[in-house]
Design a binder for these strands. Structure first.
Length: 430
RNA sequence: GUCCCCAUCGUCUAGCCUGGUCUAGGACAAGAGCUUUUCAAGCUCUCGACACCGGUUCAAAUCCGGUUGGGGACGCCA
């Protein structure tokens, strides 16, 4: 049984890099019928926070990952001390006393060659003579990362360690500990790192955006996962859009790249639009309602869900991120629409009172107020006036929406309704 | 500085393991066009890469060595 773990430290939010590591761990385990374990590395009591634990678990769930077990290192200090004592008793470690009288347990590193066979990189060899003796238990009694990590991985029967390339240099230190403590050394798979746009490590300043931020920006979890998946792995056959379920069938850790990848948000945008286009509009409606309420475009207690749904359908294919919706569709919900000054100057500077008046009359005379009839009425009008369609389409759009861009004009008119359409047009009749 | 990892279009990648089918394929971005009522979407086309040097070989993007470049690690952080 394959058992992998994702071991975040709750000293910050789950960000892109962590999510990708979690994704590959999850993919590897679940594609092989194995188990995915979560371990919260909260040994640094001062910096670890409960809110971050919650945030990390929420983000993982939002992305679609489930786990079988959770461990908290802060609850396992006794275990680490026990193993430190074993190392001490076996003469593998020694005690170092600081000036203040505090004691730390230090592991003796014996010079030797360590070879690991990485699932992604192949053989890697290290010479431990360049490694200093390693602290096992700090003078405050807490374990160090490498020590707690090895003890936990061994005791929780982790068979494969899938983590970032930045841990390669920790590997020989850990192998030394596995051997010293009599544990079986697991398999390793070091994933290529995700680099920031301009190159270099990701940081808060350079693209290490929290998953929750992508969520609030309006990215769909499936899109984000799809994007992350393509960073270092390819499903083959030139596939770009692939969901988790299908990736499960195709995933093989041996096909993961060795090369670090640079984040390209343009591609994320494209993928998100692909998912948005195919997403169930009902679900998008549910997601959009809270922000409509928040922006006071609809009233919390009395809104027409079906109407919102129809508007969502109108914008669905043109959205890059869902959060754009409230800005693009505001005119469907507001009484006083914000007017883009440039649009007004360009299309409504000329007096169109006559044209608008005639159009309102035509709309009022329609037996059936639907998109086909609206368009028909409009086409007849421009034919009668002997003008180009666009000479009137653009001004009408600006008058109705306050913007130069948006869905097709006749759909806009239909969804706005006869009343609001003529009302907004009348404002420009002198 | 020491150790380690990596190297195909601007970006993500296919191909590399098992040399010839590669005048190197796809996607994003960019540019052009079609459509047209704007913006998207869609469709068509264009631009664009095997880092460099040497070796092995009849033949190298693919194998080997070096150079250069990029990245990572060297904490009583994780």
């Amino acid at each position: 049984m394959i058992r992998v773990r994702f071991a975040p430290s709750p000293t910050g939010n789950l960000h892109i890099g962590g999510a990708r590591t979690a994704l590959f761990n999850w993919l590897y385990a679940r594609s092989k019928g194995g188990e995915f374990i979560l371990r919260i590395e909260d040994t640094d009591l001062a910096r670890s926070q409960k809110e971050y634990v919650d945030e990390i678990l929420n983000s993982l769930t939002w992305l679609g990952f489930d786990w079988d077990e959770v461990y908290y290192q802060s609850q396992r200090f006794d275990i680490y001390r026990e193993y430190a004592k074993k190392a001490l008793d076996a003469g593998l470690a020694y005690i170092e006393r600081s000036d203040t009288g505090k004691e730390a347990v230090i592991f003796k590193v014996i010079p030797q060659k360590i070879k690991i066979s990485d699932l992604i990189h192949g053989d890697i060899e290290f010479d431990t003579s360049v490694i200093k003796d390693q602290v096992l238990i700090k003078s405050d009694g807490t374990p160090t990362y490498n020590f707690a990590c090895v003890v936990d991985d061994a005791l929780t029967d982790i068979t494969h360690i899938v983590r970032g390339d930045d841990h390669i240099s920790n590997t020989p230190k850990q192998v030394l500990l596995y051997n010293a403590l009599g544990f079986k050394v697991p398999e390793f798979a070091h994933l290529p790192l995700i680099l920031a746009k301009g190159g270099g490590r990701m940081s808060k300043r350079k693209g290490a955006t929290a998953i929750t931020e992508y969520r609030s920006m309006g990215y769909l979890p499936q899109a984000l996962v799809n994007f992350l998946m393509l960073l270092g792995w390819s499903p083959g056959e030139n596939r770009e859009i692939i969901e988790l379920k299908e990736a499960l069938k195709l995933f093989d850790i041996k096909n993961v790249n060795k090369t670090a990848a640079v984040m390209d948000l343009d591609k994320l945008d494209w993928i998100n639009n692909q998912y948005l286009k195919n997403e169930d509009p009902q679900r998008l409606t549910d997601q959009v309602i809270p922000s409509l309420i928040e922006k006071k475009l609809i009233d919390k207690d009395s809104f027409d869900r079906d109407y919102i749904l129809s508007i969502v359908k109108l914008f669905q294919a043109r959205l890059t991120v869902l959060s754009e919706f409230v800005d693009w569709a505001d005119f469907f919900f507001l009484k006083d629409i914000p007017m883009d000054p440039k649009a007004e100057a360009k299309y409504l500077a000329r007096d169109l009172s006559g044209e608008f008046k005639l159009f309102i009359d035509k709309l009022n005379n329609l037996d059936k107020f639907d998109i086909v009839n609206i368009e028909d009425a409009f086409r007849k009008l421009v034919a009668e006036l002997n003008i180009e369609s666009k000479a009137l389409i653009h001004p009408i759009r600006v008058a109705l929406t306050g913007k130069t861009v948006g869905p097709g004009l006749f759909e806009v008119i239909y969804h706005l309704g006869r009343e609001r359409t003529s009302e907004r047009l009348k404002r420009w009749i002198k």
